[in-house]
Every structure is written in structure tokens, then in C-alpha cells.
Design a protein around this nucleic acid. Sequence first.
DNA 1: GCCAACGTTGGC
DNA 2: GCCAACGTTGGC
Length: 158
Amino acid sequence: MAYWLFKSEPTAYSFADLLAEPARTTGWDGVRNYQARNFLRDQVQVGDGVLFYHSSAEPPAIVGIAEVVRAGHPDPTAFDPKADHYDPKSDRANPTWYQVAIRAVRAIDPPLDLPSLGRVPELAGMELLRKGSRLSVQPVTQGQWETILALAQSKSKR
DNA sequence: GCCAACGTTGGC
DNA sequence: GCCAACGTTGGC
């Protein structure tokens, strides 16, 4: 059991979009960075926890929790000439790009915005908070995961 | 819109 | 293998 943070620009694909999917599930396609690809292909497992993060948002924030429902498998959009992230160099016999499938668990409301996360001592050292961090699939430690869930719980409006 | 911090490409 | 040029990400 491991934990991850997945980034998405909400104008491209938001947590609300995930909640609106059939079975609240989608293939996490379009990842075209080798370090992120390696995590998706080799390490992300069914049952792992996912923090859903909105980048280039106002403010950038962790907005939901998801779980992995299918481990790494080839990303079909890499083979589709009409897809945004089509990669003519990838082929089905030896795929370059991988995806996993995730299912929404619940929204974090209010979201945990980036400036606030930066003030949490327990999260010092989190990859998301590192200056220049661009990795779109990043590992989260169990301690970071528990801290974030506790923050979400304590601020939750019900 | 700016720009820092990357990652990728390609000449050599 | 080096590294300059270029492209991208993403906070501000």
C-alpha cells in the first residue's frame, strides 16, 4: 500500500470531472514524462491512495481523494493519432507510455490550498512543496498522507 | 504575462 | 558524452 499525488489542470480535467465519470473511474492517460511514467508502470498498485491536485488553479490545491483500481498498463491515447498526446514513436508491441485507472473516493472541501500546505511543519520536504517541482505523478509518504487527511478532516465543513 | 526550474533534442 | 538551444510546467 503506497500513496501518490496526481496533478491535473482543472481546465483540462478536474476532480469534478472524475466524480462525473461512470463508476467515478477514469484512465489516467496523457502522462508523457519518463519519471512519472516509471511510477505508473512499475510502482502504482491497486488499492494505493491518490491525492488529486489542481495545478495552475486559483489557488492550486489538493481537492480530492482517489484510489487506484487498475495498475499500470499501456496508455491507449499514445497510439491514437487524433489524441492530444499522440506519440508516433510509441508502438503497441513495445509501448512507451503507461496509465493506471483511478476512482474518486471523496472530495476535500474546502480544498487544501498550496500556500496553507506550505505552512504545515509535518509537510516540509514534500515533493509538491519543493521549489521547481514539476513531477505530475509523485510519491507521498504515509506520514504526509496521514497529515493531509487529518487536515482535510479538521477543516471539513459538513 | 513573467520567469525559474526543469526535461528534451540534436550538433559536435 | 557534452552542452546550448529550445520547449514545457506551473507558481506568482
